[in-house]
Amino acid sequence: MRGTTVLPGTGCADVEEGALPMHRLEVPMPNVMPFAIGTFDTIGPMSRASFPHRHTFYEIVHVTGGTGTHVIDLTGWRLHPPHLCVIAPGQVHHWQDATGLEGSVVLFTEDFLIDHPGDRDHLRRLGERPWLTLDEAAHAWTGRLVAELDDEYRRGAAGFESVLRALLHILVVRAGRLPGPDTAPEPVPAPSGPAAPPASRAASVAEEFTRLISGTDPSLWAVGSCAERIGVTTGYLAEAVKAATGRTPGQLIREARTHEAKRLLARTDLTVRQVADRVGLADPAYFCRFFRRETGVSPGDFRRGGDIHHDHRIESIARTGPAA
Results as ranks from 00 to 15, higher is better:
A196F: 03
L212D: 03
A202E: 10
V223A: 10
A199G: 10
P185N: 08
A203W: 01
Y153W: 12
V146H: 06
A140G: 08
A203K: 04
A184I: 06
A138G: 02
T210S: 11
W141Q: 09
I170W: 03
A138H: 04
A196L: 04
G215I: 09
L168A: 04
G215T: 10
T142H: 09
D150N: 12
D217W: 07
A157C: 00
V188Y: 08
V188F: 08
S162T: 15
V205D: 01
E152C: 15
A203Q: 06
V188D: 00
E208L: 10
T142F: 06
L167G: 00
S192W: 01
A147I: 11
E148N: 08
R165L: 11
L212K: 01
A202L: 07
A166K: 12
P198L: 06
L149K: 00
D150S: 15
G215D: 07
R177S: 09
R144E: 15
R177E: 10
G193C: 10
L178G: 02
S219W: 03
F160Q: 00
R174Q: 11
F209C: 09
L149R: 00
R177W: 07
R165P: 05
G180M: 05
A158D: 11
P187T: 14
A157R: 01
L168M: 07
D217A: 12
R165Q: 11
A199I: 09
A138S: 14
L145W: 04
S219G: 11
R144G: 01
A199K: 08
S192C: 04
I170S: 09
L171V: 05
V172E: 01
S200E: 15
A147T: 14
G224Y: 02
P187D: 10
E207C: 11
P191L: 15
R154T: 15
D150M: 09
A199F: 07
Y153F: 13
L171C: 06
R174N: 08
R174K: 13
E208F: 05
D217F: 10
R174L: 12
P197D: 11
Y153S: 06
P185M: 02
S225G: 05
G159D: 06
R211S: 11
R155K: 14
E148M: 14
V163D: 01
G159M: 11
D135P: 01
P218T: 05
V172G: 00
L145M: 09
G215R: 05
S204K: 03
A202G: 02
G224M: 04
W221G: 01
L171S: 04
R144D: 15
H169E: 04
A137F: 12
P197I: 08
A137S: 13
P194R: 02
E136W: 05
R201N: 12
G215P: 12
S219C: 05
F160A: 03
D135C: 15
F160G: 00
I170Q: 13
F209M: 08
E148K: 03
D150E: 14
A206H: 03
A222K: 02
P189W: 02
I213W: 04
A184G: 02
D217T: 06
V172R: 05
E148Q: 12
F209P: 01
S204P: 00
D217V: 07
F209I: 08
V172S: 01
P198C: 04
E208Q: 13
R211T: 08
A206G: 04
L171I: 02
V146M: 09
D151Q: 15
V188K: 03
W141F: 12
S192A: 14
T142G: 03
R155A: 14
L168Q: 00
A138R: 03
